[in-house]
């Protein structure tokens, strides 16, 4: 197993040096491996020295208080920002200097914290955009409606409906994406990300704004997706029931640094994590 040497960043507690990759994936190359990942905006270190390893079929959580830099880590992984320090290895390949679009082709797909759907397009079209690089035909056959167009469209339609059926959304295929209810929009984002055939799925607060029942369903679905597509999932979430319920490994960020790493049980009893989440109470006294 390609274990990461873990460098402690926090002064208070030594971070457990065990890797969080589960036993099932032992011996396999991690799908994502970052070392000393960091970015500076001017003088501000938004993310500093983050070391992550995610196994090929692992569900991994990234948690931390607001403003800890979780979404920035996602933006670094998907190359929305270019990291100023460190490296990102995707399936063992360095992604330095790549664009967002190239990173996606390498097998990294994401959803967004504030939903970013193609609002003026139908649900099915949204999913077909995800399939853009999977099912191809050239522009020429598109304009002159050559056989390639009909075959490609048929395949895309079928695949899109298959993907939508994961979340029971096939009946919404012709609805405008912008007119869907909030929960359905979140689910559609996941379907769209899955359509790009990723090996690593990044979910940015997938349960935000969902009621407990919907969250429960989402948890089942995330596990289902992992099993069906054999992909790794890295998720940011504030809902601790979800995180503790499905994540096999958890990484806690605070002020852009990793303060703890480990299994859900380890994290729950980690004093540094408790301090990061509840520390303000002490100060208030």
């Amino acid at each position: 197993m390609a274990s990461k040497k873990f460098k402690s960043n926090t002064i208070m507690v030594p971070v457990p040096s065990t890797s969080i990759v589960p036993e099932r994936d032992a011996g396999k190359l991690p799908v994502l491996e970052t070392s000393h990942l960091g970015i500076e905006f001017g003088g501000l270190k938004a993310v500093d020295d983050v070391n992550l390893a995610v196994g090929p079929t692992e569900i991994c959580g990234l948690i931390g208080p607001n403003g800890a830099g979780k979404t920035t880590v996602f933006n670094l992984l998907t190359k929305v920002y270019q990291p100023t320090h460190g490296t990102i290895l995707l399936n063992g390949k360095d992604t330095a200097g790549m664009t967002t679009e190239q990173a996606n082709r390498m097998g990294i797909a994401r959803t967004f914290q504030n939903i970013r759907l193609f609002n003026n397009m139908t649900v099915e079209e949204n999913v077909t955009i995800g399939l853009h690089n999977q099912i191809r035909y050239n522009m020429f056959s598109g304009i002159f409606r050559l056989p390639g167009y009909w075959m490609g469209e048929k395949k895309q339609h079928q695949k899109a409906l298959d993907l939508l059926s994961i979340f029971d959304m096939t009946h919404l295929a012709n609805a405008k994406a912008g007119s869907l209810p909030y929960g359905a929009q979140r689910r559609l984002e996941i379907v769209r990300a899955l359509a790009t055939h990723p090996s690593l799925l990044l979910l940015d607060e997938p349960a935000a704004g969902m009621n407990p029942h919907e969250t429960e369903e989402l948890m089942e679905n995330i596990i289902k997706i992992r099993d069906q597509f054999q992909i790794a999932v890295l998720l940011i979430e504030h809902d601790m029931n979800l995180v503790m319920g499905i994540c096999e490994g958890i990484c806690v960020l605070n002020y852009g640094r990793v303060i703890a790493k480990g299994t859900p049980d380890e994290i729950q009893s980690n004093p540094a994590v408790i301090e990061a989440y509840l520390g303000k109470q002490k100060e208030a006294k």
């Binding site: 998907t78 929305v80 664009t99 967002t100 679009e101 996606n104 082709r105 797909a109 994401r110 967004f112 970013r116 759907l117 193609f118 609002n119 003026n120 397009m121 079209e125 077909t128 955009i129 995800g130 853009h132 690089n133 191809r136 035909y137 522009m139 598109g142 304009i143 002159f144 409606r145 167009y149 490609g152 895309q156 769209r192 990300a193 790009t196």
Partner: peptide, 29 residues
């Protein structure tokens, strides 16, 4: 009209609707 309703046209519309999402879907905007 045929361009708009093909793979290319959908990509063009996607880039209009949400550039960042289009990029992260692997489209060369």
């Amino acid at each position: 009209q045929n361009l708009i309703n093909s793979r290319t046209g959908r990509a063009i519309k996607a880039c209009r609707d949400n550039r960042i999402a289009a990029e992260s879907m692997g489209l060369n905007v």
